[in-house]
């Protein structure tokens, strides 16, 4: 390891925090999806860092990161399909204007 493990973990923690801020404050649903991708990426960095330092078998973390990337691709596909269907039905992409079920 060239740089100590906690520095990498702090970096991915900051990346996760930025993504979480985006999820909580964006109004546009596509913006929320983009922020979710950031958070998934932070998790992937952690997996790779642990697979290089503390894991029992060196390839475990990389396998998990592959699965994370596959799931993220699915999230983007299904999420954006839902956004397009919503846009067609309600003519909006803002999360707080979709209030049909809100009491």
């Amino acid at each position: 390891m060239i740089i100590p493990l906690p520095h990498v973990l702090l970096f991915s923690l900051a990346l996760f925090g930025i993504g979480a801020y985006g999820v909580l404050t964006r109004r546009n649903i596509i913006g929320i999806l983009i922020s979710i991708e950031l958070m998934l990426n932070a998790a992937g960095i952690n997996l790779i860092a642990f697979s290089k330092t503390t894991a029992l078998a060196p390839e475990t973390g990389q396998i998990f990161a592959v699965f994370v990337i596959a799931i993220a691709a699915m999230t983007a596909t299904v999420g954006l399909a839902i956004v397009l269907a919503l846009y067609r039905a309600r003519k909006t992409v803002f999360a707080d204007e979709v209030n049909l079920l809100k009491w």
Partner: peptide, 25 residues
């Protein structure tokens, strides 16, 4: 792939995101 799909979706819905509309809650 993912960024391309996201940009595709932004293009399809973009004219709702005008300058006067608030982008955050």
């Amino acid at each position: 792939a993912v960024v391309t799909v996201i940009i595709f979706a932004i293009m399809l819905t973009e004219h709702i995101a005008e300058r006067s509309v608030a982008q955050r809650n």
